[in-house]
Amino acid sequence: MKRNFLHISAAIFLLSTLLSGCMNDNAWIGAHRQGQSGQLLSNFGVFIVNEGNFMSGNATLSFYDKATGQTINNLFYATNGLPLGDVGQSMSILDSLGYIAINNSGKIYVINTKTGEYSGKITGLTSPRYIHFVNYEKAYATDLYASAITIFNPATFRVTGTIPTPGHTSTEQMVQVGATLYVTCWSADNTILKIDTGNDTVTGEIKVGTQPKGLVKDKNNQLWVLCDGNYGGTTSGSHQAKLQQVNPETGQIEKSFALSSENIASDLTINATRDTLYFINNDVWQMPVTASQLPAAPVLKNPGTIYYSLGVDPDNSDIYVSDAIDYLQRGLVYRLTAKGVPIDTLKTGIIPGAFCFK
């Protein structure tokens, strides 16, 4: 679902998903735990959401302990006895709770980040993508197909409303500057929506390159957006992939860099001090926000594999890049310093697609 790939199913996980659908999650998990509690997870770790194969119900959650180098795979199932679902998309943390968007299952699972134990779920969603917390009582979830952003209460796990986005079917990543939320509209679109977080309404639009997906805020409160150009698109055709700097106050594009359209441009992120950008364009690239041109060489050269997702540690700017290998077998994640020096390699689930730093 992240890049519209369709893969071969894994029958055992699909069967588990179908069976779990016949039983209330709380009852299912209660029967599995039988008085046992989850293991304590390090406070210095990284959750890795493994997408799994579309329509196979084999998404999983991994946890990597930065101090020991230990990786716990299939954490959600091992702790709760319940499959994570169909296509793990992203994860966000609010205090001690982690919210995991399960795209094709149309729900968000909530876990205790100290143990991995199930805490609840948010349902009634179409195809959730990313989560943004406005405060402790209000959060937003973007959606691939709903033409609306869902509003929910992160404390009660209840949907409280929606923000209609007519004309914009696919909403993606979110960044807040002051009281205004900026949201990328991805599929066959070229728009960043402006939303008033006080009254939950769309107040304006900013036009950027084709298919804006990644969105970050730098140290100067400037927005950076990565537009993938509809790589490999067959309906509306492929366009130039771009990395653009946008002034949120004026809506003007201050800088625009053309990226290689021969490879997927994806996974824009930023370092701990918010002065250096990272993104994938076949290789992994690193660029200061003050740069006037693209770097001459990548920070990590692709040896011929599939660099699929990227994360940068908000504490020390270590780089995490995933390798989907062939989209069928368990993937790898490479951990490197901010300068690209290798630190560790870990084995994860199928298609490691998102990082969430604890």
Score class of each variant (00 low, 15 high):
M1V: 07
H7R: 12
I8V: 07
I8F: 06
S9G: 02
L15D: 13
T17V: 07
L19C: 06
S20M: 13
C22Q: 12
M23C: 07
N24T: 12
H32F: 13
R33A: 01
S37N: 10
G38L: 15
N58G: 09
N58Y: 05
T60V: 04
L61H: 03
F63D: 01
K66V: 07
T68P: 09
G69T: 12
Q70R: 10
N73H: 08
N74F: 00
T79K: 02
P83E: 12
L84H: 09
D86E: 05
D86Y: 05
D86L: 09
G88M: 08
I93W: 08
D95T: 15
S96I: 14
G98D: 04
G98C: 03
G98I: 13
A101P: 14
A101H: 09
A101M: 04
I102L: 13
K107L: 03
T113R: 07
T115F: 04
S119E: 09
K121W: 06
I122K: 00
S127I: 13
S127W: 05
Y130C: 04
I131D: 02
F133M: 06
F133H: 12
V134L: 02
E137Y: 10
A139S: 08
Y140V: 08
L144G: 08
Y145L: 05
A148L: 00
I149P: 03
T150S: 00
A155P: 00
V159L: 09
P164F: 13
T165P: 00
H168T: 14
T169W: 04
Q173Y: 14
V175I: 03
V177I: 10
A179R: 09
Y182T: 06
T184I: 13
W186Q: 09
S187K: 12
D189P: 15
L193R: 05
K194L: 11
K194H: 08
E205C: 03
I206S: 08
K207D: 10
K207V: 14
G209W: 13
T210K: 12
Q211A: 02
K213S: 14
G214Q: 04
V216Q: 09
D218N: 06
N221R: 13
N221T: 10
V225H: 02
D228V: 09
G229N: 07
G232W: 15
T234Q: 11
S238P: 07
S238H: 07
Q240E: 04
Q240C: 03
A241E: 02
A241S: 10
L243C: 08
L243F: 06
Q245S: 12
N247E: 15
T250W: 11
I253N: 14
S261T: 02
E262T: 05
N263T: 03
S266F: 01
L268P: 02
I270N: 02
N271R: 01
T273F: 07
D275Y: 13
T276D: 14
I280L: 14
N281R: 02
N282Q: 10
W285Y: 12
W285L: 11
P288T: 14
P288N: 15
V289P: 13
A291F: 12
S292R: 02
L294G: 05
L294A: 10
A296L: 11
P298C: 11
K301V: 12
N302W: 01
G304S: 05
I306S: 01
Y307M: 10
G311V: 09
D313F: 00
S317F: 10
V321S: 06
D323Y: 06
D326A: 03
Y327V: 06
Y327R: 04
L328Y: 01
Q329L: 06
R335S: 04
P342H: 15
I350E: 02
A354P: 08
F357I: 08
